[in-house]
């Protein structure tokens, strides 16, 4: 009876058996570079302190299938926001900052002709940042979770990574429902001399989408045999 119940449950799950995780692949989705800053920023002398919120913005010049950008006529910009610092750990010159879930990542599409060219300005937020990065049509929107920043205060550089789930934007229907999760990583540095005043680091990163977990057709007999063991 127990075996029958298991088999019926599996039937409801569409008679598919997932492959092992090692077979999972990823595909490049978005490439971005820009600068980051904190706002609110309770203590401008430190980075990642409790109460601070991480933001990053800049151009997103390379957008990959299944996205369908029109780079001839539009500029594309990205915006990370709503990432509230939760915990900072210090290990010598390294700090590791973990952020609360609920972060947002967006890509905006704005016409080159008649639109507003992005402008970092200084000491963000300001009159042009994030405003000129978040105007036009919201092209991609997604949630950011498990956002973690690693910085070496001795070298002035580091990295971040996070999970990404696409949730909206004009391109949502182009991305299959079973392929909207992925991850991002980026390098960060404070060693670029031309960084606009008030921004903390230069950022260069990518987002990947996980390809759907492949499934293999199985017969009733094969499934029952598997769960009789």
């Amino acid at each position: 009876m127990k075996h029958v119940a298991i088999a019926l449950s599996l039937a409801i799950l569409s008679l598919v058996v997932p492959r092992t995780p090692s077979a999972q692949a990823a595909q490049l989705f978005i490439d971005y570079f820009g600068y980051d800053y904190e706002s609110p920023n309770p203590n401008p002398g430190t980075f990642g302190e409790p109460g601070s919120v991480y933001n990053s913005l800049g151009p997103a010049p390379n957008l990959f299938a299944p996205l369908a950008p029109d780079t001839a006529n539009n500029q594309y910009t990205y915006f990370f926001t709503n990432l509230a610092a939760a915990n900072v750990q210090t290990f010598g010159s390294f700090i590791v900052i973990d952020y609360f879930p609920g972060g947002l990542f967006q890509v905006w599409e704005d016409a080159k002709l008649g639109g507003t060219f992005y402008d970092f300005g200084v000491n963000p937020p300001n009159a042009t940042a994030p405003a000129t990065f978040t105007d036009g049509t919201k092209f991609v929107e997604g949630s950011i979770d498990q956002f973690q920043v690693v910085l070496n205060l001795a070298t002035g550089s580091g990295s971040f990574d996070a999970n990404f789930t696409m949730t909206g934007g004009s391109q949502l229907s182009n991305v299959p429902a079973n392929q909207r999760t992925g991850w991002t990583f980026a390098g960060t540095t404070a060693n670029e001399l031309n960084r606009p005043s008030g921004y903390d680091h230069q950022v260069d990163g990518q987002i990947f989408l996980n390809e759907p977990t492949p499934a293999q057709p199985k017969s009733w007999g094969a499934i029952k045999a598997r769960y009789r063991q």
């Binding site: 070298t155 550089s157 580091g158 990295s159 990574d161 980026a186 390098g187 540095t189």
Partner: peptide
């Protein structure tokens, strides 16, 4: 030139410069 890696980031990420 340097590379910075670690043993804990979930997507196995670091940087080089």
């Amino acid at each position: 030139f340097y590379t910075q890696t670690n043993n804990f980031t979930q997507s196995k990420s670091g940087n080089m410069e």
